[in-house]
């Protein structure tokens, strides 16, 4: 140890300790930072793929009408043409993929209609709403309206 450093030896050792700490930190950082971090921004590029892997549960209307051509023909021109099949039938991706393995859900025509058509003061006024108490009470709605192509002037 030269004379100049004699009285600073403890400081040199402390500095060395800090240096070791910094180096350790840098090594740790190099090893532990996930791969692909920072490719697109300050995040793991793999997170994009992670967000994509999930399998959809709703197949989408275009899938249904590929097979169900009868319903498609009725539905296309009707008042429910804007209503997706799964809005009433629920998520059916499994069924669409393999109809024999997974049965489709058939909504109850007595109740399903109310999710949308029940009167409510907050609904847009031009939306067709009914109060079941004074709308042809009794029979299921599909007795008069077809669920796939309802009409204001029903068949019966």
């Amino acid at each position: 140890m030269n004379r100049f450093l004699k009285d600073k030896e403890h400081l040199v050792r402390m500095a060395a300790l800090f240096a070791v700490g910094v180096v350790l930190f840098l090594i740790l950082k190099a090893v532990l930072v996930p791969k692909g971090f920072g490719v697109y921004g300050h995040y793991r590029a793999g997170a994009l793929a992670d967000n994509r892997v999930r399998a959809p549960r709703f197949a989408g209307r275009s899938a249904c009408i590929e097979c169900h051509t009868d319903e498609r023909d009725a539905w296309k021109g009707g008042k429910h043409a804007g209503v997706g099949c799964e809005a009433c039938h629920g998520a059916l991706a499994k069924h669409a993929e393999d109809p024999s393995a997974s049965n489709a859900f058939k909504p109850d025509p007595k109740t399903i209609c109310f999710t949308c058509h029940l009167t409510n003061a907050a609904k847009p006024r031009k939306f067709p709403q009914i109060d079941p108490k004074n709308h042809f009470d009794g029979g299921a709605c599909n007795g008069c309206h077809s669920p796939h192509a309802p009409d204001k002037e029903p068949k019966k």
């Binding site: 004699k6 009285d7 600073k8 030896e9 403890h10 400081l11 050792r13």
Partner: peptide
């Protein structure tokens, strides 16, 4: 804790104080 340095000379303490 002393990092094995036994030196408490006037000069070293002066440096410590300054630092």
């Amino acid at each position: 804790l002393t990092l094995g340095v036994d030196n408490i000379s006037e000069e070293s303490l002066r440096i410590d104080d300054k630092l």
